[in-house]
Amino acid sequence: MIETVTSVKLPVDESLLIQKNRMEPLELTGREKRMTIVTGTHGDELEGQFVCYEVLRRIRENMDCLKGIVDVFPALNPLGIDSITRGIPQFDLDMNRIFPGSQEGVFTEYVAAEVVNDIAGSDLCVDVHASNIYLREMPQIRISENTATKLIPYAKLMNVDFVWVHAAATVLESTLAHSLNMMGVPTLVVEMGVGMRITKEYCYQLVDGIFNVMSELGIWTGEVNPVREPYVSVDEEVGFVNADASGIFVPAVPIWSYVEEGGHIGDILNPLTGLIEHRMEAPCTGTVFTLREYPIVYHGSLIARVLGGVKIC
């Protein structure tokens, strides 16, 4: 059933609507577990749109297998998605930096608060992100180290390629995931694919994981595809490659390839002189799980991340 979680009137003859689709078993017992899938916080991240579609499609085709409640929020930032804008149009702050929101704040903070209130009480939340328009990411779950013990068991069920346990950062305390985790709703942040695109194989991979975790929670009794065991990494294992020149980046390796330390990752070219400005090399031996997608780079632009010492591709 499609529900409007909250709405705000816009100046001229339109309302901002935050909608979700609640899928419930045909017969409710009152003891159902609830899982929430959210995406579309950043308007340029679209991979989650296909995930939402596919989750709902599979449930709809096998309603008799649904034994719990699944809430699907395709668009926390519908104005951003509709205008190809990462943030909320006409609002300075990244929507994923205003949670848990506030009833007293501006309308965006009010919307954030209403979303959090609605998700509260879920047994699990999956927050699907799609990197940005500059970088492609292999399907991964990112977990802050202070929630790792609780979340890693869930993350291992999700059919992602690896789980990155990263250091806690104060600035991340205003994300949706942090706010929900602090409220007792285990929340997994998925990063996969690239902005403004849909990568179907990644989406299918994640959807298989979502049904696997639903099965473990007793929400789904239908058939579940086999899932992979992710590699769980910590910050120390991740090597960053940042541009040492400005120009056009052309990769020499595909994402999810194994590289030796000093191996060729790509080149930064100068289209005016016809020269290579800089040869980009791997900082360590390992697997490339992040790779630059958008070619224009400045000094400092992130080119790649390498999971050091690991061959999982």
Binding site: G87, Y134, N242, Y298, H299, G300, S301, L302
Partner: peptide
């Protein structure tokens, strides 16, 4: 202009990081 990041949300910065962090 390149990535719409806010330099005033990048302090103290990081000289080996992304462009606006640098």
């Amino acid at each position: 202009a390149v990535d719409n990041t806010d330099i005033n949300r990048m302090f103290p910065g990081y000289d080996k990081g992304e462009t606006t962090q640098r």
